[in-house]
Design a protein around this nucleic acid. Sequence first.
DNA 1: CCGCCTATGTTATACCATTGCGTTTTTTCG
DNA 2: CGAAAAAACGCAATGGTATAACATAGGCGG
Lengths: 159, 159
Amino acid sequence: MSGAHSHNHQHCIDAALARAAAICTDAGAKLTAQRQAVLQLVWQSHKPLGAYPLMNQLQQLTGKIVAPPTVYRALEFLLEHGLIHRVHSLNAFIGCDHPGEPHSGQLLICRACGDAQELDSETINTSIAQLLPANGFSAERIMLEITGLCRNCQGAKHE
Amino acid sequence: MSGAHSHNHQHCIDAALARAAAICTDAGAKLTAQRQAVLQLVWQSHKPLGAYPLMNQLQQLTGKIVAPPTVYRALEFLLEHGLIHRVHSLNAFIGCDHPGEPHSGQLLICRACGDAQELDSETINTSIAQLLPANGFSAERIMLEITGLCRNCQGAKHE
DNA sequence: CCGCCTATGTTATACCATTGCGTTTTTTCG
DNA sequence: CGAAAAAACGCAATGGTATAACATAGGCGG
C-alpha cells in the first residue's frame, strides 16, 4: 500500500485544504502546519482512517516521532470546525465533503472495500427533525452510519 | 448505588427476560445463566452500560472474577439475537425495547442524564430505504444515534 | 466410551483515547 | 521593541475498550 490509488484525486485534497483554510480564517482559527498535515492525510485516504495509522503516516510525513495526543488534538480541532467526521462504527475519521454547511454526517460504509461515502439527504433530515418534537428532544448531534455493500462490492461479494 | 431507583421497573426486566427466553428457544439458541445475567444487568441500568462497569456488576452478582472476554462474548450473543443494542457513541450497551421485530436501532441519547430512548420511526426507515437505491448501496446495518437533551433535562440544564 | 460441538475460563495483548505537565511558539498590547 | 498572556506542542504515563490465543468443561449423538 504505497500511494497506489488508480484514481488521482489530488485536486480533491487540494480543494479540501483550500476550503479548510478559508473556513479557519473566517472563524479566526489557526490551521497550523500540523493540523493541515493531519487533514491532508485524512483526505488522502479514501477510507476512514484510524488515529494510530494516521499517527504513523504523520511520522513518516514529518520525520518526527508523534505521540497520540498530538494527533488527537489535531483531530479534535478539525472536528470542532467541521472539517472531518468521526466514524464511530470504525473508530476512525474521514474528510468532510461539504464543510461549512450544516449537516449531520450521514455515511454509507462498505464493509468489503472500506470506502465511505457521505450523504446529505434533506428527506432524512426533515424526517428526523419532525420526529424530535414528538419526543420533546432537543438534538445537538445526529449520527447516521449505514454499513453494507457498495455498488462495486455487491457483485464480487464475499460471504 | 444499591437499588436506589425511584421507579421500580422490575417488571420491565422480567418481561424482557421472558421475551428473550422465548426468542432464544425459538431460534434454537441457549440463553445460559451467564447470558441471562448479563441481559438482566443491561436492562437493570436505565442508561447505556459500558462493558467494564457491566463486568464489575457481573462479578458482584456472581461472586466470581469475570474477565473481559466473558462479558464480551455474552454481549455478542445478545447482539446477534437482537436482544440488546450497541450504542456506538458511548461505547456502551442497552436493552432492546422490541426484540424479534426488525428494526434499526434509532436512539435518542440525553447527554445530561445519560438516558437513552429507542425509537422506531417508519418515516425515517422509509426515507433511508428510498435513499439507498440511488446510491447503489445494499444496507446491512443502520445506526442512528441522536445526542442532545431530553425533555426533562432541557429546563433544568444550561449548556 | 468417544469424538464433536458449544460455552466458558484464563492470560496476555492489541487497540483507542485522555490526563497532566512542562516547553516552545505565537499573539497581544503597553 | 519586549514582556505578559495565550495557544499549540512534546512527552510520559495511564485509563478505557476489545480481541487473540489457548486451555478446560460439559452435553449429546453415534
